[in-house]
Write a protein that binds this DNA or RNA. Structure first.
Length: 513
RNA sequence: GGCGGCGUAGCUCAGCGGUAGAGCAGGGGAAUCAUAAUCCCUUGGUCGGCGGUUCAAAUCCGUCCGCCGCUACCA
């Protein structure tokens, strides 16, 4: 039976436009999805949008449009961004869809039936003007002794009926789970933070609201809507057909990994596992958190006006170069900085010079000196065998890196081989062999062809379009592009199409900089 | 305050007990197949400070300094 792989992005909250941070998480998830497909697994890749909650309701009102129409528009924009980034999602879940409402309510009913939800009241300092509760230590005491919200709004002690989830009952089980599954939360630093957070003690969680209506009604109590996170997290199950445990897609559960931004790690690493335990459902294998992007060294924010729409970058630099940069620049899991200088440098040095030029110089020599005909695999010299051995290790190296979500390290491994190829071609100097030993020249070019094929094959998840083109230029058929296919050498004699540049160098427009 | 992370070459980082590493940037040279791309060699660091453990410490322990994260119910 084919192994399954279920990977998710967060469902993105539709109170604002998609930006580079969303694209980053989605591209990372896409690399994992594409990688596992190429490695022969049956993959389900889910993304989508989170559309409930007070903020969305308010944003829609501010925009002067109907709430559903508002979410339709923003959700559509997120979907357009995913498409623009070539995200190969298999399903796009929206929390306003009937299938999701049904699943979230069923999950609620299950948790409630198991005795983990009870009705009580939520009390706290409420600012009518801000329409939200503030905790005691957030309040600011004025000179006259009255307490106000950090926004300056007056607050009053309010008591609102609310359903609570018995999160406190799961503290020990969560800690045991973290302990026995050391790779459940990644990266390490986040695992420690979460563990430390849970050890401090968990309070029961208010999981319903009566102060607004834009949400999924609580079963049997329509005055309440679900707390957005109970609603949102359920998406990972609703896309599978939950609560129908016999639904075909339920076979993908438990998810192999939920990729999340570091701001929502707690919801995924604490609340979600607790909800699942409460419902008697298996837990996902891993929650992997990625960092933030800063822009030219500064935090991305609306007020600074430096929010980057990934589509603008794509328009300027091209899709695959942007995908490459996002995953290449800084170790996956940490924060990263997006700045033009390093972006352009990476694209020119690593894509155009190292890889693009390697392909070009190899293919053009095959085209010109061998009439474009792929030579047979030769008897290998030690140097040949060394290079090919290095290239043949790539699939396993990548498997290992992908299993740890080390997407950046994976690229580094590939580039070692790219550099080795450039070193090899200079050492062998086929342009000299052309005159002295044409047979050996053909052998060298064939060795390079094989090495580049391996490189292009394993890079497909990162840069699907460009590597697809490169494989076509290498005359690798569609059914010869999986990792498994690398074990079979291509037959000699194939005619390669005329080579074309893959990654043009970026030259800054005259006027700028 | 509590818990945790980080501080290694100009830059971004790897190494995490056994004679300081990679990429980029800088310098010199070679080559000319190629997107003026490539290759080779090379200059850079008392691995934040101070103490300790050890035959041996970026690597373990303590302490100090400087950054940063988490410390719940606004996604």
């Amino acid at each position: 039976m084919t192994a399954r792989y279920y990977v998710t992005t967060p469902i993105y909250y539709v109170n604002g436009a998609p930006h580079i941070g969303h694209a980053y998480t989605s591209v990372a998830a896409d690399v994992l999805a594409r990688f596992h497909r190429l490695d022969g697994r049956d993959v389900l890749f889910l993304t989508g949008t989170d559309e409930h909650g007070q903020k969305v309701e308010q944003a829609a009102q501010a925009a002067g449009v109907d709430t559903q129409a508002f979410t339709d528009r923003i959700s559509g924009d997120f979907r357009a961004m995913a498409d623009a980034m070539n995200i190969s999602y298999d399903d796009y879940i929206r929390t306003t869809e009937p299938r999701h409402k049904q699943a979230a309510q069923s999950l609620w009913e299950k948790v409630a039936a198991n005795g983990h939800i009870y009705l009580d009241a939520y009390e706290g300092w409420y600012a009518l003007r801000d329409e939200c509760f503030y905790s005691e230590d957030e309040l600011v005491t004025r000179p006259d002794g009255t307490k106000v919200a950090p926004t300056g709004a007056p607050v009053e002690w309010l008591r609102e009926p609310s359903y609570f989830f018995r999160l406190s009952a799961f503290q020990d089980r969560l800690l045991e789970y973290y302990e026995s599954h050391p790779h459940f939360i990644g990266p390490e630093a986040r695992r420690r933070e979460i563990t430390s957070f849970v050890k401090q003690g968990l309070r029961d969680l208010s999981v319903s609201r009566t102060s607004f209506k834009w949400g999924i009604p609580v079963p049997n109590d329509p005055d309440h809507v679900m707390y957005v996170w109970f609603d949102a997290l359920a998406n990972y199950l609703s896309a599978l057909g939950y609560p129908d445990m016999a639904a075909p897609k339920m076979a993908y559960w438990p998810a192999n990994v939920h990729l999340v931004g570091k701001d929502i790690i707690r919801f995924h690493a604490v609340y979600w596992p607790a909800f699942l335990m409460a419902a008697g459902i298996e837990l996902p294998h891993a929650i992997m958190s990625n960092g933030w992007w800063t822009i030219e060294g500064e935090k991305m924010s609306k007020s600074l006006g430096n929010v980057v729409d990934p589509r603008d970058l794509v328009a300027e630099f091209g899709l695959d170069p942007v995908r490459f940069f996002l995953l290449r620049e800084v170790p996956f899991g940490g924060d990263s900085d997006l700045n033009r200088r390093s972006l352009i440098n990476r694209l020119n040095v690593e894509l155009a010079n190292d890889l693009g030029n390697l392909a070009q110089r190899t293919l053009s020599q095959i085209a010109r000196n061998l009439g474009g005909v792929l030579p047979e695999r030769p008897i290998l010299t030690e140097d040949d065998a060394g290079l090919l051995a290095q290239a043949s290790l790539l699939p396993d190296l990548l498997r290992s890196q992908m299993s740890r979500f080390a997407l950046t390290d994976g690229l580094e491994e590939v580039w070692k081989v790219v550099r080795a190829c450039n070193s090899y071609i200079d050492r062998q100097a086929p342009w000299t062999l052309r005159k002295t030993d044409p047979e050996r020249m053909a052998a060298v070019l064939r060795v390079l062809h094989d090495a580049i094929r391996a490189i292009a094959t394993v890079l497909q998840p990162y840069m699907p379009d460009s590597m697809g083109k490169l494989l076509t230029q290498l005359s690798v058929n569609d059914d010869e592009r999986s990792f498994l296919a690398l074990d079979t050498a291509l037959p000699g004699g194939r005619v390669l199409p005329a080579p074309q540049g893959l990654f043009p160098r970026y030259v800054a427009p005259e006027s700028s900089e």
